[in-house]
Every structure is written in structure tokens, then in C-alpha cells.
Write a protein that binds this DNA or RNA. Structure first.
Ligand SMILES: [Zn+2]
Length: 317
DNA sequence: CGGCTTTGACCAGCGC
DNA sequence: GCGCTGGTCAAAGCCG
């Protein structure tokens, strides 16, 4: 498939003189190929400084290519898992229709999860504001669901995402044989962020983490963004959906647009088959929303600048 | 000794 | 009111 050249240049502000076609507009069209070609003519202003940056650009381009491959693989796996989910939902809606508890209204109707298998970790974000939470104090609680694929570090629900969590409970739920762990952010004593981590019902290698609240402190350890994507179970980015970062005024990361959400919600009965159009739309959505998310770009820039030793705008957020 | 995990108890909603 | 279930508390234990 040809997601190969979605605009994954991510606007990292690493180039001292952006050549005006890659940065600025993220029109997520397919075929909008912004291949970071390092042999492109350097800007005539500074060419001494770009000498060292050329190989970094090359490395970035390979990383970009790797990221696009990741995206396409994620897309494939999303498709497979989505089919599987539809199968299960169809099967469940037959013999569970008398057993329809209202409590599982937030079980699996509008989460879109992505099952990544090539790397060891993949996450998919679906941020929903409220509309299924308790009516009071719903204003301060922003929930966001993250599906992390992890096969390493398996037996413990301790998925580390850069913050510091203290486990304060564990329960077995009814419709899932695996227990659910409750964590609270213990870095700052006033941080109200909690998260629930539960293994997926069928695919035991999927951890579904549900963050709620927003941190009121900086991140203690800058997330070890392993750009190789083949390390342990650390999610690859901070992934701040719907304002997890404090000073930002709600960076909404619209992975679930009304069109897509409607599409995924509609096919509960027997939506036959989604074309790769949905895949492409999803990838475009993910890419564009990732590029629009400043924390993701900052984290990526932090990772890259860790190698480059070039001071980027990490301090800016 | 301090911080964290474990784990049973406790409590609040919700349906009957 | 009762029972079920999800979420939280806190005592006890573990570990560096
Ligand atoms: Zn926090």
C-alpha cells in the first residue's frame, strides 16, 4: 500500500531553514509525498552548518520511512483486529442480547483500537470527553483510552509511560477474566491523574490503559522514545490526547471524527467490509493529528535531538 | 526506614 | 432493601 509518503515530516523544526513545502501545511493527502531527500539543494544561506545536518536528515528520512511503515502495519493490523472485533460483536450480540447490562455501555462500542504486531508496542488513542461518566465532576475528568500492544514485560500491568504510578487497587471485572489494575500518578502528590490498565479480553497481549485527568506537573522522565520501535513496552510517545499537557489549551487530537466514529459504530450488525479507504483515512487522520499534536512532535524532537545534540524546542512546552 | 505492591474490606451506584 | 459490581482505602508485607 502506498501510505509510504504521507506527510510524516512532522514539522519538527529541526531544519534551520525549512524549504517551505514540508513544514507549515499538513494537508494529509495521499500522494503528497514529502520525501525528505537530503540531496535536495541546500538553502543558499547557510551551507556550512548543513554539512553536519545532512546525515541527520538522512537518518530522519529513514526514521520517517520507518514510521510510515509502522503506520501502514498498524493499519493492516487495525483492519484485521477490526474484523475480528466485528465478528465477536456479531457473535456476542446474538447470545448476549438478553444479558445486555447497561454497565458495559463503555465496553467496546466506540473504541477504535489498533493492533500492532511488528513492533512490540503500538498505541491507539481515543479520547472522549464525557457523555458516559458520572454527571458530576465530569468537567475536570478527561478520560482517554490507550491501547498498548505489549508482549514483553507481560505479567505485570506496569506499563511505564514516562510518569510514575502507584498501584492502589486491583479488581476482577465480570466480563473480562483478567484483572484490572488501578494506578495513581505518584510523582506529584497533588496530581489527580489516575489510570486503569486492563488486559484485553481475547487478545491477552493488548493492554488497554484508560487515563483520566490531566497532570499538573512536568513529566518526570522524558519518555524514552525509542525510535527503533522495537524495545520494551514503553509506548512510543507521550500521546497527550485532549489536553494531557498542562499549558496547552486543549490540543484535541481528533482521532474519532464523526465520520469515522459513525462508521465504526454503524457496523455493529453486519457492515460488510471496509475498503482500504478507511485505512487510508485512518492513517491520514493519525498522521495529521499526530503532526498537529505538539507534545508528540516535541517528544520526537527530544528523541532526535538527543542524538543530534541540537537544541530544539523542548523547553518550549 | 520509606516507598511501593498486594489484597481483602468498604463504599457508592444501579437494577430488581 | 438486597445483591451485584466497579472503584477506593488501608493494613500488611516486600524490597532496596
Ligand atoms: Zn501526574
Amino acid at each position: 500500500m502506498e501510505f509510504e509518503f504521507i506527510d510524516t515530516s512532522l514539522g519538527l523544526d529541526l531544519k534551520p531553514n525549512p524549504p517551505a513545502n514540508s513544514l507549515g501545511d499538513f494537508s494529509p493527502k495521499r500522494g503528497d509525498c514529502v520525501d525528505v531527500d537530503v540531496e535536495r539543494k541546500p538553502s543558499p544561506v547557510l551551507k556550512e552548518d548543513t554539512g553536519g545536518l545532512v546525515e541527520e536528515l538522512r537518518r530522519m528520512s529513514t526514521e520517517n520511512k520507518k514510521l510510515t511503515e509502522m503506520l501502514s502495519i498498524m493499519c493492516e493490523n487495525y483492519n484485521a483486529l477490526h474484523n475480528h472485533l466485528k465478528e465477536l460483536m456479531r457473535k456476542n450480540s446474538d447470545h448476549q442480547l438478553f444479558n445486555s447490562r447497561k454497565r458495559k455501555a463503555e465496553s467496546e462500542d466506540n473504541i477504535n483500537n489498533i493492533h500492532g504486531s511488528s513492533g512490540n508496542n503500538t498505541e491507539s488513542i481515543s479520547s472522549d470527553e464525557d457523555s458516559s461518566k458520572k454527571p458530576r465532576e465530569s468537567t475536570k475528568g478527561k478520560v482517554s483510552r490507550v491501547v498498548v500492544k505489549t508482549e514483553k514485560s507481560d505479567n505485570s500491568l506496569l506499563l511505564k509511560d514516562g510518569y510514575q504510578w502507584r498501584k492502589y487497587g486491583q479488581k476482577v471485572t465480570r466480563d473480562n477474566p483478567s484483572p484490572r489494575a488501578y494506578f495513581k500518578c505518584s510523582f506529584a502528590p497533588t496530581c489527580p491523574v489516575k489510570k486503569k490498565v486492563q488486559r484485553s479480553a481475547e487478545d491477552q497481549s493488548l493492554l488497554i490503559a484508560t487515563y483520566e485527568g490531566e497532570h499538573n506537573h512536568q513529566q518526570p522522565s522524558p519518555v524514552e522514545v525509542s525510535l527503533g520501535f522495537n524495545r520494551a513496552a514503553t509506548p512510543a510517545s507521550v500521546l497527550s490526547p485532549a489536553s494531557m499537557v498542562s499549558p496547552r489549551p486543549t490540543v484535541t487530537l481528533d482521532l474519532i471524527q464523526p465520520g469515522l466514529a459513525n462508521n465504526t459504530a454503524k457496523n455493529s450488525v453486519h457492515d460488510v467490509k471496509e475498503k482500504p479507504v478507511v485505512q487510508q483515512f485512518l492513517v491520514e487522520q493519525m498522521a495529521s493529528s499526530l503532526t498537529r499534536d505538539p507534545s508528540f512532535t516535541a517528544a520526537l524532537a527530544a528523541a532526535i535531538s538527543g542524538r543530534i545534540l541540537d537544541q530544539t524546542q523542548i523547553e518550549k512546552w
